[in-house]
Simulated assay, not measured.
Amino acid sequence: MIYPWLEPVWQQIARHWQQQPHAWLLYGHPGIGKREFAEYLAQALLCESPGTNHQPCGECTSCHLYSQHSHPDFLLVTPEETDGEGGERKQPLIKVETIRNVLDFAHLSAHRGGKRVALIYPAENMNLQAANALLKILEEPPQGMVFILVSHQKDRLLPTIKSRCRQVVLTIPAPAQALAYAQQQHGDNAAELLAFHGGAPLFNENDSHTQLRNELIALLVKPRLIALLDYAATFDKHKLALATFLDWLAKWLLDLSLAQQNMQPIYYPVWSKALNEISRQADTLLLFALIDKVNKLAPYGKHTLNVKMQLEDLLIEYLNIWQQKNIKS
């Protein structure tokens, strides 16, 4: 399926259907329907009776096989599942062994006599060895083979891989359209949740995550050392990834920096009044230093760092933003 806000992108692809590349790179914000779009494209490439706008018919043998997840000329490549012990703290990777299977698949003859399609999602989760293995076949692709790479963070892909793909940005929906969709799924909390997710309406909100995030924001509004350290321990007990906390904190710090410039918050609009009050008490230089630190930690959000220790360090630095301002004044 294609979500309504991505229909214009499909129309553009359909207009140039005869000039298809051997490799696509579909990228954009998380939560806008990139995987669904990629799967629709894959089905259209395999369809034996496409519509006038090159959309898959949904009725031919190929479409039936695709809908049953048994099409012999389609291969979906996703990261290996993490074990239960590692939880979300373990970085899911697409490893070189998996990409070698893709290479074997690429050199097979098509069972249905048409194209063969491999969809890699998310492409940035390939480790370096896997990315280099894929690069070799992108340089000399077999006849009739199409690769569809989907990425939330295309800057994490090798430049040489990106240069061998036709890059297509999938856009976030207009605010009104996103809100209308989110309201259908999340009711009264839709506007607040949509803002937190950057306007991308396809989000799954975990109740335990929401509670932990709300507890964090309450502490950031009125930070107290012991309470902050207790929170770090509580977060750690939930076995959540450092990346989750970094996302929550980075969005708060950005909104705080906007408040210092008399601008409206992006991610926490319901806390606008509190952010304005806090912005007058926060040391600007220390705030930007903490933002920089959070950004530098972001690439390690799924690594096996001591999460509790990292949270304690970041939260103490946040508290210091307040204390230093008060000392100077």
Rank of each mutant, 00 (worst) to 15 (best):
I2K: 10
I2L: 14
E7L: 10
I13Y: 02
W17K: 03
Q18R: 15
Q19M: 09
W24H: 01
L26R: 08
Y27W: 15
G28T: 08
I32S: 07
E36L: 13
E39C: 11
L41N: 07
L45M: 08
L46Y: 00
E48G: 10
P50Q: 11
N53M: 09
N53D: 15
H54P: 01
H54C: 07
C57G: 05
C63I: 03
H64R: 14
S67P: 01
S70G: 07
L76F: 04
L76M: 09
E85I: 05
G87Y: 01
R89T: 01
K90R: 11
L93S: 07
I94S: 11
I94Q: 12
K95I: 03
R100Y: 05
N101C: 05
H107L: 08
L108H: 12
H111M: 12
G114V: 06
R116P: 08
A118G: 05
E124N: 02
N125C: 06
L128K: 12
Q129H: 12
A131V: 05
N132H: 10
N132R: 08
N132F: 06
L135Y: 06
I137A: 02
E139W: 10
L149I: 05
V150D: 10
S151V: 07
D155T: 10
R156V: 04
L157G: 05
L157Y: 02
I161S: 03
R164G: 05
Q167C: 13
Q167K: 13
V168A: 08
A174L: 14
P175V: 06
A176W: 03
A176Q: 14
A180N: 12
A180W: 09
Q185P: 02
H186V: 01
G187K: 00
G187C: 04
A190F: 00
A191Q: 15
A191F: 02
L194G: 02
F196T: 07
G199E: 02
A200C: 03
L202S: 06
N204Y: 14
N206G: 09
H209K: 12
H209D: 15
T210W: 14
Q211H: 13
L219H: 10
V221E: 11
K222S: 11
L225R: 13
I226M: 14
I226K: 12
L228D: 02
L228V: 06
L229D: 11
Y231V: 00
K239T: 08
F245E: 00
L246P: 00
A250P: 06
L253Q: 09
L253P: 04
L256Y: 07
L256F: 07
A259W: 03
Q261T: 04
Y267I: 01
P269A: 02
W271G: 03
S272E: 13
S272A: 11
K273M: 12
K273G: 05
E277Y: 06
E277K: 10
I278N: 13
I278P: 00
S279A: 15
S279H: 03
T284K: 13
L285C: 11
L285H: 15
L287R: 05
F288W: 15
L290Q: 08
V294P: 06
K296D: 11
G301N: 03
T304R: 14
V307T: 10
M309C: 00
L311G: 03
D313L: 14
I316Q: 07
Y318Q: 09
Q323R: 15
S329I: 10
